[in-house]
Design a protein around this nucleic acid. Structure first.
Length: 289
DNA sequence: GTTCCAATAT
DNA sequence: TATATTGGAA
């Protein structure tokens, strides 16, 4: 049934590559390195955490981060390098950005490094993406397998056929149809991100205040909100984070004729996609569930 | 030398 | 289970 297929396309076309949708996302992961280097802690545990991370000139004490303790072992000397980061939790938002990046790049160029660059998530490493990509590919392959059966047209069949318990995360993001069909770059010839038009916005800061529970515009999917142990999360306080999206790193490419450098995306507010509800994108659940 | 990818480990 | 880490290959 081609009709269903085309239907898919239509849907995705709308849902997918909107540069605007892609760019504004601002995720922030604080790496232990940076956290330590900048001494990020809880400057204002009272109510509003408006202060971005200005250069913290003074530091009374290290917060729960290092503080000494647990001296046994070889930890306590040079924390900065070779530090193990906490496991990255792939939130639906993060995954969405991941999928969008892959969709824009096309399967050919969708390799960890490129994906990571386009995602522009601070703290995200190539390994993180690679690992996720591996699993994502398996997911796609699986879907290909059963979408070929006579069931019904891909989407619906795939959705119902896949076990929600097996891949809820993946089910939360739209899957570019061409992924399932053939390896072809989504970009025919025009698609390297459009350097978002600068939007003059006097944003002061975007520290997430961690508010309402997370409900996206996505389909009716349910997620398990789980508390994750993150980096500088005070065990009894609120989380603090909110930073800058990763900036283009001064890296010189070696023969990579792919899309030009990831333009420095300007931060921007995300406008709801017709839903009407504006949502604050926060990295972690507030635990207010 | 770097990055990808699949397998394997935690 | 989900993610990290490893090791071989391009």
């Amino acid at each position: 049934m081609r009709e269903e297929d085309s239907n898919w396309f239509s849907r995705w076309e709308e849902e997918l590559p909107s540069p605007e949708e892609l760019m504004p996302l601002s995720q922030t992961l604080i790496t232990p390195d940076l956290a330590l280097a900048f001494d990020i802690r809880n400057p204002n545990p009272s109510s509003q955490p408006p202060p971005p991370p200005p250069p913290p000139p003074s530091q009374p004490h290290s917060a729960e981060f290092d503080s000494g303790e647990l001296g046994s072992g070889a930890a306590g000397d040079e924390p900065a390098r070779t530090l193990k980061r906490p496991r990255l939790v792939w939130t639906p938002q993060l995954h969405k950005r991941f999928v969008d990046a892959v969709a824009h790049l096309g399967i050919k160029n969708a390799v960890p490094k490129t994906i990571m660059q386009l995602m522009s998530v601070d703290g995200l490493t190539r390994e993180n993406v690679a690992s996720h990509l591996q699993k994502y590919r398996l997911y796609l392959k699986r879907m290909q397998g059963l979408s070929g059966g006579g069931g019904g047209g891909g989407g619906a069949a795939a959705l119902s056929a896949t076990d929600p318990a097996t891949d809820h995360l993946f089910a939360s993001a739209p899957v570019p149809p061409h992924f399932l069909h053939h390896g072809r770059p989504a970009s025919d010839h025009f698609l390297p991100f459009v350097p978002v038009t600068l939007q003059h916005h006097h944003h002061q800061q975007m520290a997430a205040a961690a508010v309402a529970a997370a409900h996206q515009q996505q389909q009716q999917q349910q997620f398990h909100h789980r508390q994750i142990g993150h980096f500088g999360s005070p065990p009894g306080g609120q989380f603090e984070h909110g930073f800058l999206t990763r900036q283009p790193q001064p890296m010189h490419r070696m023969g990579a004729p792919v899309p030009g450098q990831p333009p420095a995306y300007v931060e921007d507010l995300e406008s709801a996609t017709g839903g009407g509800g504006r949502k604050v994108l926060t990295l972690f659940p507030t635990g207010d569930d």
